[in-house]
Design a binder for these strands. Structure first.
Lengths: 147, 147
DNA sequence: TCATATACTATCGTATGCGATTAAATTCAA
DNA sequence: TTGAATTTAATCGCATACGATAGTATATGA
Protein backbone atom coordinates (compact mmCIF):
# COMPACT_ATOMS: atom_id res chain seq x y z
CA UNK A 1 0.00 0.00 0.00
CA UNK A 2 1.80 3.08 -1.19
CA UNK A 3 -0.96 5.66 -1.18
CA UNK A 4 -1.97 7.82 1.77
CA UNK A 5 -3.99 5.59 4.05
CA UNK A 6 -5.43 8.58 5.88
CA UNK A 7 -7.55 9.71 2.99
CA UNK A 8 -11.18 8.75 3.11
CA UNK A 9 -11.16 7.75 -0.54
CA UNK A 10 -8.44 5.21 0.09
CA UNK A 11 -10.20 3.31 2.80
CA UNK A 12 -11.74 -0.06 2.12
CA UNK A 13 -13.52 0.07 5.47
CA UNK A 14 -15.32 3.29 4.60
CA UNK A 15 -16.54 1.71 1.36
CA UNK A 16 -17.85 -1.35 3.17
CA UNK A 17 -19.53 0.81 5.78
CA UNK A 18 -21.17 2.92 3.07
CA UNK A 19 -22.14 0.03 0.81
CA UNK A 20 -23.73 -1.84 3.71
CA UNK A 21 -25.77 1.15 4.82
CA UNK A 22 -26.94 2.01 1.33
CA UNK A 23 -27.95 -1.50 0.32
CA UNK A 24 -29.70 -2.02 3.65
CA UNK A 25 -31.69 1.16 3.19
CA UNK A 26 -32.57 0.03 -0.34
CA UNK A 27 -34.36 -2.88 1.27
CA UNK A 28 -36.38 -0.62 3.55
CA UNK A 29 -39.15 0.37 1.11
CA UNK A 30 -39.82 -3.32 0.43
CA UNK A 31 -40.04 -4.02 4.17
CA UNK A 32 -42.33 -1.11 4.91
CA UNK A 33 -45.61 -2.89 4.23
CA UNK A 34 -44.54 -5.74 6.49
CA UNK A 35 -43.36 -3.35 9.17
CA UNK A 36 -40.02 -5.06 9.72
CA UNK A 37 -36.38 -3.98 9.61
CA UNK A 38 -33.35 -5.47 7.89
CA UNK A 39 -31.94 -7.23 10.98
CA UNK A 40 -35.40 -8.64 11.64
CA UNK A 41 -35.47 -9.90 8.07
CA UNK A 42 -32.17 -11.67 8.69
CA UNK A 43 -33.69 -13.50 11.64
CA UNK A 44 -36.70 -14.46 9.56
CA UNK A 45 -34.51 -15.80 6.75
CA UNK A 46 -32.58 -17.84 9.25
CA UNK A 47 -35.76 -19.30 10.75
CA UNK A 48 -37.31 -19.99 7.34
CA UNK A 49 -34.26 -22.13 6.65
CA UNK A 50 -34.28 -23.80 10.05
CA UNK A 51 -37.02 -23.19 12.57
CA UNK A 52 -36.71 -23.64 16.36
CA UNK A 53 -33.25 -22.18 16.82
CA UNK A 54 -31.74 -21.33 20.16
CA UNK A 55 -30.33 -17.85 20.76
CA UNK A 56 -26.71 -18.92 20.40
CA UNK A 57 -27.38 -20.40 16.96
CA UNK A 58 -28.83 -17.06 15.89
CA UNK A 59 -25.98 -14.99 17.31
CA UNK A 60 -23.38 -17.23 15.65
CA UNK A 61 -25.07 -17.29 12.30
CA UNK A 62 -25.62 -13.53 12.18
CA UNK A 63 -22.30 -12.69 13.87
CA UNK A 64 -24.17 -10.62 16.46
CA UNK A 65 -24.17 -10.68 20.27
CA UNK A 66 -27.04 -11.37 22.64
CA UNK A 67 -27.14 -7.71 23.62
CA UNK A 68 -28.33 -7.03 20.07
CA UNK A 69 -30.31 -10.19 19.40
CA UNK A 70 -32.32 -10.44 22.62
CA UNK A 71 -34.05 -7.06 22.34
CA UNK A 72 -34.50 -7.59 18.61
CA UNK A 73 -36.26 -10.91 19.23
CA UNK A 74 -38.36 -9.34 21.97
CA UNK A 75 -39.62 -6.77 19.49
CA UNK A 76 -40.33 -9.47 16.93
CA UNK A 77 -42.24 -11.50 19.51
CA UNK A 78 -44.29 -8.43 20.40
CA UNK A 79 -45.17 -8.12 16.72
CA UNK A 80 -46.33 -11.73 16.62
CA UNK A 81 -43.64 -12.93 14.21
CA UNK A 82 -41.91 -15.40 16.52
CA UNK A 83 -42.16 -17.17 19.87
CA UNK A 84 -39.38 -17.28 22.48
CA UNK A 85 -39.87 -20.36 24.65
CA UNK A 86 -37.72 -21.76 27.40
CA UNK A 87 -36.27 -25.18 26.61
CA UNK A 88 -37.65 -28.04 28.72
CA UNK A 89 -34.38 -29.93 28.48
CA UNK A 90 -32.04 -27.10 29.38
CA UNK A 91 -33.64 -24.17 31.10
CA UNK A 92 -30.84 -21.81 30.18
CA UNK A 93 -31.75 -22.11 26.52
CA UNK A 94 -34.50 -20.29 24.75
CA UNK A 95 -36.04 -21.73 21.61
CA UNK A 96 -37.05 -19.27 18.94
CA UNK A 97 -39.76 -20.38 16.52
CA UNK A 98 -41.87 -18.83 13.79
CA UNK A 99 -45.55 -18.11 14.35
CA UNK A 100 -47.94 -18.76 11.46
CA UNK A 101 -47.68 -15.05 10.71
CA UNK A 102 -43.91 -15.33 10.56
CA UNK A 103 -44.16 -18.38 8.30
CA UNK A 104 -46.56 -16.68 5.92
CA UNK A 105 -44.08 -13.88 5.34
CA UNK A 106 -41.71 -16.23 3.52
CA UNK A 107 -44.06 -16.55 0.58
CA UNK A 108 -44.97 -12.86 0.67
CA UNK A 109 -41.37 -11.67 0.76
CA UNK A 110 -39.72 -14.20 -1.50
CA UNK A 111 -39.43 -11.89 -4.50
CA UNK A 112 -37.77 -9.04 -2.61
CA UNK A 113 -34.13 -10.07 -3.12
CA UNK A 114 -34.78 -10.59 -6.83
CA UNK A 115 -36.46 -7.20 -7.14
CA UNK A 116 -33.53 -5.52 -5.50
CA UNK A 117 -30.97 -7.41 -7.59
CA UNK A 118 -32.87 -6.38 -10.71
CA UNK A 119 -32.86 -2.74 -9.64
CA UNK A 120 -29.10 -2.83 -9.18
CA UNK A 121 -28.45 -4.59 -12.48
CA UNK A 122 -30.78 -2.20 -14.27
CA UNK A 123 -28.69 0.64 -12.92
CA UNK A 124 -25.49 -0.61 -14.49
CA UNK A 125 -23.88 -3.16 -12.19
CA UNK A 126 -23.33 -6.49 -13.95
CA UNK A 127 -24.46 -9.75 -12.40
CA UNK A 128 -20.89 -10.93 -12.85
CA UNK A 129 -19.53 -8.01 -10.87
CA UNK A 130 -22.00 -8.69 -8.10
CA UNK A 131 -20.99 -12.33 -8.03
CA UNK A 132 -17.32 -11.43 -7.98
CA UNK A 133 -17.88 -9.67 -4.67
CA UNK A 134 -19.20 -12.78 -2.95
CA UNK A 135 -16.00 -14.86 -2.56
CA UNK A 136 -13.97 -11.74 -1.75
CA UNK A 137 -16.35 -10.78 1.04
CA UNK A 138 -16.47 -14.36 2.31
CA UNK A 139 -12.71 -14.53 2.57
CA UNK A 140 -12.62 -11.08 4.14
CA UNK A 141 -15.17 -12.02 6.80
CA UNK A 142 -13.42 -15.29 7.53
CA UNK A 143 -10.07 -13.53 7.81
CA UNK A 144 -11.35 -10.99 10.29
CA UNK A 145 -13.22 -13.56 12.35
CA UNK A 146 -10.02 -15.56 12.71
CA UNK A 147 -8.12 -12.75 14.34
CA UNK B 1 -29.48 -15.65 -10.38
CA UNK B 2 -30.64 -19.23 -10.25
CA UNK B 3 -30.07 -20.11 -6.61
CA UNK B 4 -32.52 -19.55 -3.78
CA UNK B 5 -32.36 -15.88 -2.94
CA UNK B 6 -34.05 -16.43 0.40
CA UNK B 7 -31.09 -18.21 1.90
CA UNK B 8 -28.88 -16.16 4.13
CA UNK B 9 -25.76 -17.61 2.55
CA UNK B 10 -26.79 -16.37 -0.85
CA UNK B 11 -27.21 -12.76 0.09
CA UNK B 12 -24.67 -10.17 -0.91
CA UNK B 13 -26.29 -7.65 1.41
CA UNK B 14 -25.79 -9.84 4.46
CA UNK B 15 -22.11 -10.20 3.59
CA UNK B 16 -21.68 -6.44 3.26
CA UNK B 17 -23.53 -5.87 6.51
CA UNK B 18 -21.33 -8.41 8.28
CA UNK B 19 -18.06 -7.31 6.70
CA UNK B 20 -18.74 -3.68 7.58
CA UNK B 21 -19.55 -4.45 11.20
CA UNK B 22 -16.57 -6.73 11.67
CA UNK B 23 -13.99 -4.41 10.10
CA UNK B 24 -15.38 -1.46 12.02
CA UNK B 25 -15.10 -3.33 15.28
CA UNK B 26 -11.53 -4.30 14.34
CA UNK B 27 -10.73 -0.60 14.42
CA UNK B 28 -12.20 -0.16 17.89
CA UNK B 29 -9.19 -1.32 19.93
CA UNK B 30 -6.99 1.17 18.09
CA UNK B 31 -9.46 3.96 18.83
CA UNK B 32 -9.83 3.13 22.48
CA UNK B 33 -6.88 5.19 23.77
CA UNK B 34 -8.19 8.19 21.84
CA UNK B 35 -11.73 7.63 23.08
CA UNK B 36 -13.33 8.01 19.66
CA UNK B 37 -15.60 5.85 17.50
CA UNK B 38 -15.40 4.83 13.87
CA UNK B 39 -17.89 7.42 12.58
CA UNK B 40 -16.02 10.08 14.54
CA UNK B 41 -12.80 8.90 12.89
CA UNK B 42 -14.45 9.37 9.49
CA UNK B 43 -15.23 12.98 10.36
CA UNK B 44 -11.67 13.53 11.53
CA UNK B 45 -10.25 12.06 8.32
CA UNK B 46 -12.46 14.32 6.30
CA UNK B 47 -11.38 17.40 8.28
CA UNK B 48 -7.70 16.43 8.13
CA UNK B 49 -8.05 16.48 4.36
CA UNK B 50 -10.05 19.72 4.28
CA UNK B 51 -10.69 21.75 7.42
CA UNK B 52 -13.60 24.19 7.91
CA UNK B 53 -16.35 22.17 6.27
CA UNK B 54 -20.01 22.98 6.52
CA UNK B 55 -22.45 20.33 7.65
CA UNK B 56 -23.76 19.60 4.18
CA UNK B 57 -20.25 18.87 2.89
CA UNK B 58 -19.84 16.34 5.67
CA UNK B 59 -23.20 14.66 5.11
CA UNK B 60 -22.55 14.39 1.36
CA UNK B 61 -19.05 13.07 1.72
CA UNK B 62 -19.99 10.46 4.32
CA UNK B 63 -23.37 9.66 2.74
CA UNK B 64 -25.06 10.34 6.07
CA UNK B 65 -27.94 12.63 7.05
CA UNK B 66 -27.95 15.55 9.47
CA UNK B 67 -29.93 13.53 11.97
CA UNK B 68 -26.83 11.36 12.34
CA UNK B 69 -24.14 13.96 11.81
CA UNK B 70 -25.41 16.76 14.03
CA UNK B 71 -25.46 14.77 17.28
CA UNK B 72 -22.17 13.11 16.32
CA UNK B 73 -20.52 16.50 15.88
CA UNK B 74 -22.05 17.73 19.12
CA UNK B 75 -20.38 14.86 20.94
CA UNK B 76 -17.08 15.56 19.19
CA UNK B 77 -17.30 19.23 20.17
CA UNK B 78 -17.96 18.27 23.77
CA UNK B 79 -14.77 16.18 23.65
CA UNK B 80 -12.80 19.13 22.36
CA UNK B 81 -11.99 17.63 18.97
CA UNK B 82 -13.81 20.16 16.80
CA UNK B 83 -15.60 23.53 16.84
CA UNK B 84 -19.05 24.15 15.33
CA UNK B 85 -19.34 27.84 14.48
CA UNK B 86 -22.11 29.72 12.73
CA UNK B 87 -21.08 31.20 9.41
CA UNK B 88 -20.91 35.01 9.34
CA UNK B 89 -21.86 35.10 5.68
CA UNK B 90 -24.85 32.74 5.83
CA UNK B 91 -26.28 32.21 9.26
CA UNK B 92 -27.95 28.94 8.26
CA UNK B 93 -24.57 27.35 7.79
CA UNK B 94 -22.37 25.95 10.44
CA UNK B 95 -18.63 25.68 9.93
CA UNK B 96 -16.91 22.67 11.44
CA UNK B 97 -13.23 23.01 12.21
CA UNK B 98 -10.55 21.02 14.01
CA UNK B 99 -9.23 22.14 17.39
CA UNK B 100 -5.51 21.77 18.05
CA UNK B 101 -6.39 18.55 19.86
CA UNK B 102 -8.22 17.32 16.77
CA UNK B 103 -5.29 18.27 14.57
CA UNK B 104 -2.77 16.50 16.76
CA UNK B 105 -4.68 13.24 16.37
CA UNK B 106 -3.74 13.02 12.69
CA UNK B 107 -0.11 12.36 13.52
CA UNK B 108 -0.99 10.06 16.42
CA UNK B 109 -3.44 7.96 14.40
CA UNK B 110 -1.72 7.86 11.04
CA UNK B 111 -0.42 4.32 11.40
CA UNK B 112 -3.76 2.77 12.34
CA UNK B 113 -4.97 1.93 8.81
CA UNK B 114 -1.62 0.33 8.00
CA UNK B 115 -1.68 -1.69 11.21
CA UNK B 116 -5.12 -2.98 10.41
CA UNK B 117 -4.25 -3.76 6.79
CA UNK B 118 -1.21 -5.68 8.01
CA UNK B 119 -3.32 -7.68 10.43
CA UNK B 120 -5.67 -8.68 7.64
CA UNK B 121 -2.90 -9.60 5.23
CA UNK B 122 -1.12 -11.56 7.95
CA UNK B 123 -4.29 -13.57 8.40
CA UNK B 124 -4.38 -14.72 4.81
CA UNK B 125 -6.10 -12.08 2.68
CA UNK B 126 -3.88 -10.92 -0.19
CA UNK B 127 -3.27 -7.26 -0.84
CA UNK B 128 -4.45 -7.95 -4.37
CA UNK B 129 -7.73 -9.37 -3.15
CA UNK B 130 -8.28 -6.34 -0.93
CA UNK B 131 -7.58 -4.04 -3.84
CA UNK B 132 -9.94 -5.96 -6.10
CA UNK B 133 -12.75 -5.07 -3.76
CA UNK B 134 -12.25 -1.33 -4.13
CA UNK B 135 -13.53 -0.76 -7.69
CA UNK B 136 -16.35 -3.24 -7.18
CA UNK B 137 -17.53 -1.43 -4.06
CA UNK B 138 -17.15 1.95 -5.74
CA UNK B 139 -19.33 0.89 -8.63
CA UNK B 140 -21.80 -0.71 -6.25
CA UNK B 141 -22.11 2.45 -4.16
CA UNK B 142 -22.45 4.63 -7.24
CA UNK B 143 -25.11 2.33 -8.66
CA UNK B 144 -27.21 2.42 -5.52
CA UNK B 145 -26.83 6.16 -5.07
CA UNK B 146 -28.14 6.71 -8.60
CA UNK B 147 -31.39 4.91 -7.94
C1' DT C 1 -22.07 -34.09 46.84
C1' DC C 2 -21.23 -29.67 46.70
C1' DA C 3 -18.46 -25.80 45.62
C1' DT C 4 -16.64 -23.99 41.46
C1' DA C 5 -16.51 -23.42 36.66
C1' DT C 6 -18.88 -23.00 32.51
C1' DA C 7 -22.76 -22.10 29.45
C1' DC C 8 -26.50 -19.37 28.14
C1' DT C 9 -29.20 -15.35 28.01
C1' DA C 10 -30.61 -10.81 29.64
C1' DT C 11 -29.82 -6.06 31.06
C1' DC C 12 -27.61 -1.46 31.13
C1' DG C 13 -25.53 2.56 29.11
C1' DT C 14 -23.95 4.96 25.19
C1' DA C 15 -23.41 5.92 20.23
C1' DT C 16 -24.98 5.55 16.00
C1' DG C 17 -28.56 5.40 11.77
C1' DC C 18 -32.65 7.00 9.87
C1' DG C 19 -37.72 8.41 8.77
C1' DA C 20 -40.26 12.26 9.85
C1' DT C 21 -40.82 16.81 11.27
C1' DT C 22 -39.46 21.42 12.78
C1' DA C 23 -36.99 25.83 12.84
C1' DA C 24 -34.57 29.51 11.02
C1' DA C 25 -32.21 32.07 7.42
C1' DT C 26 -31.87 33.22 2.64
C1' DT C 27 -33.51 33.49 -2.07
C1' DC C 28 -36.72 34.46 -5.42
C1' DA C 29 -40.51 36.05 -7.87
C1' DA C 30 -44.64 38.72 -8.67
C1' DT D 1 -40.54 44.74 -1.50
C1' DT D 2 -42.65 41.25 0.61
C1' DG D 3 -44.62 36.74 1.00
C1' DA D 4 -43.77 32.07 -0.64
C1' DA D 5 -40.29 28.76 -1.86
C1' DT D 6 -35.89 26.94 -0.90
C1' DT D 7 -31.83 25.91 1.67
C1' DT D 8 -29.61 24.49 5.78
C1' DA D 9 -29.39 22.37 10.08
C1' DA D 10 -31.54 20.61 14.33
C1' DT D 11 -34.79 17.76 16.88
C1' DC D 12 -37.70 13.65 17.91
C1' DG D 13 -38.64 8.79 18.24
C1' DC D 14 -37.34 4.29 17.56
C1' DA D 15 -34.28 0.36 16.29
C1' DT D 16 -30.03 -1.35 16.12
C1' DA D 17 -24.79 -2.30 17.70
C1' DC D 18 -21.78 -3.23 21.27
C1' DG D 19 -18.72 -3.07 25.67
C1' DA D 20 -19.53 -4.33 30.16
C1' DT D 21 -21.92 -6.66 33.64
C1' DA D 22 -25.40 -9.54 35.84
C1' DG D 23 -28.32 -13.58 36.56
C1' DT D 24 -29.56 -18.25 36.25
C1' DA D 25 -29.01 -23.05 35.03
C1' DT D 26 -26.08 -26.92 34.04
C1' DA D 27 -21.69 -29.36 34.14
C1' DT D 28 -17.59 -30.80 36.45
C1' DG D 29 -14.29 -32.31 39.54
C1' DA D 30 -12.12 -33.05 44.11
Amino acid sequence: MTYNQLKLDNQLCFRLYTAARLITSSYTPYFKKFNITYPQYLVLMLLWEKDNCIISEITERLHLETNTITPLLQRMEKQGLILRQKSEVDNRRRIVSLTSKGKRLEEQMKEIPNCLAREIVDNGMNVEELQNMIPLLDKFILTIKEK
